[in-house]
Design a binder for these strands. Structure first.
Lengths: 236, 236
DNA sequence: CGCTCGGTTGATGCACATCAAAGGCTGTGG
DNA sequence: CCACAGCCTTTGATGTGCATCAACCGAGCG
């Protein structure tokens, strides 16, 4: 009997949950995922590495992965956080000799469905609806990028607040403002391009004020109103 | 007789120049550009504005446009420089109620072919090859984004050097290292999220050293080797 | 001829980096 | 079971790169 965690059939049954695959029949899904493999990752496991040849396309099934690169000076720089339903390496697949532009690193126990590039090109690309949905995911990723870029000149507390609010707004469950990803202060720092210490000074201040709490790396926003105010505080 | 500058037929004859349209027949091109309009912009003209409803998709024909947003505190923040052959607003077209995420502003006299959203959805999207090529453009845009993000912690001179080298590397004419876009110091500053004064201090130093020259807003890199060194200087 | 725009220079100050030290927590191996 | 290493967090002391503010110049332009 196949393990539900690692078997392809198990993954197939999970896919319809994600908007990306809404309305697709199991037959079509089976086609799309031909020869697909479920990769199980532990905390800090590398799913693929920046610079390696891009042989597979990926869909995050559970947990979370961060996309990161090492800067010339050695610190790493986090580009994006992928949660379930997000795609990996979609943009580079069509290139003649694709290379992963970033490394994908698991944040806690996670699983990803990996599809061979050839299958992606044969089965996924010819379905405009699917390609468009993937573009939709990339579009929102791009939007988050831009939001951060606009905050570049803002003081650090504004940037941290904007990042946290951005992350929770992804799955918009308004009642429970919990960051959907286990985030360390270092990862926040690496995302914003600042030092851990600076992030800690901001966050521990907020903790003392009771605006946020963090246990087991889950960050919860208790006073979203104050964080929003913090973001706009930079405004004239 | 239609003006070659502003007529659709004039634009149609220019398109095959761009890799995006390589190998497409004039018939197909005519289909793709049905009801298309050529917009002629002068320096600092607004092609479309962030927040407005996204009615049109665009292709830059000549000149250059910058994609920018106003930050909450009022300065603007440049997201991307579009040169001829680049696409505008492609990612948001498929959304049910698209809104331009950024403003497009002409840098010097420029022209863009604007296609109605409906035509894009009907004619462009069903052609996987075309969609994939557009993704290719977005992919390189994303790559440039990431390159900049990795430089976030680097000292300012490294960032400026990286930006200039990034811009020239786009059209890789190695013999002539000229930035393909008329750039002011302010625009460099807005791209990097720093102040004009700081950029000026860096650039005018380089000018004195003879590493770069700038006349008529065209920046030329005389000593690429030294700029490359400057980028890597941040490394440990 | 006054206007705006782009570029430049200098003086001053602050937000954040850097460096240093320490404690908790988890896993791992002797 | 304890020692040790690695990761995450925290706090404080000190320094500096860049922002800020202010002033000025030249060029193009209505």
């Amino acid at each position: 009997m196949p393990d539900r965690q690692t078997s392809l059939s198990g993954a197939l049954s999970e896919l319809p949950r994600f908007p990306l695959f809404a309305g697709l029949t199991q037959n079509i899904l089976a086609e799309l995922c031909r020869e697909g493999q479920v990769k199980v990752s532990q905390h800090r496991d590398l799913l693929f590495e920046a610079g390696n040849s891009g042989t597979h396309f990926g869909v995050v099934l559970s947990g979370a992965y961060k996309l990161a690169r090492i800067s010339p000076s050695g610190e790493d720089s986090v580009i994006h956080f992928c949660s379930p339903g997000d795609v990996l390496a979609a943009l580079v697949m069509p290139q003649p000799k694709p290379v992963y532009p970033v490394s994908a690193i698991a944040m806690g126990p996670s699983r990803a469905l990996m599809i061979r590039r050839e299958v992606y090109l044969e089965k996924w690309v010819p379905m405009p609806e699917l390609v468009i949905r993937i573009q939709g995911l990339l579009s929102s990723r791009m939007a988050r990028f831009q939001n951060q870029k606009v905050m570049q000149r803002a003081p650090l507390p504004s940037k941290v607040a904007a990042l946290l609010l951005n992350l929770v707004s992804r799955d918009s469950r308004v009642d429970e403002l919990e960051v959907p990803v286990p985030l360390t202060r270092k990862e926040i720092a690496d995302t914003l391009g600042v030092t851990v210490e600076s992030v800690i000074r901001v966050m521990s201040d907020w903790s003392k004020q009771g605006y946020v709490t963090t246990n087991e790396k889950q960050i919860k926003i208790l006073r979203p109103d104050i964080l929003v105010e913090q973001v706009n505080l930079a405004a004239d």
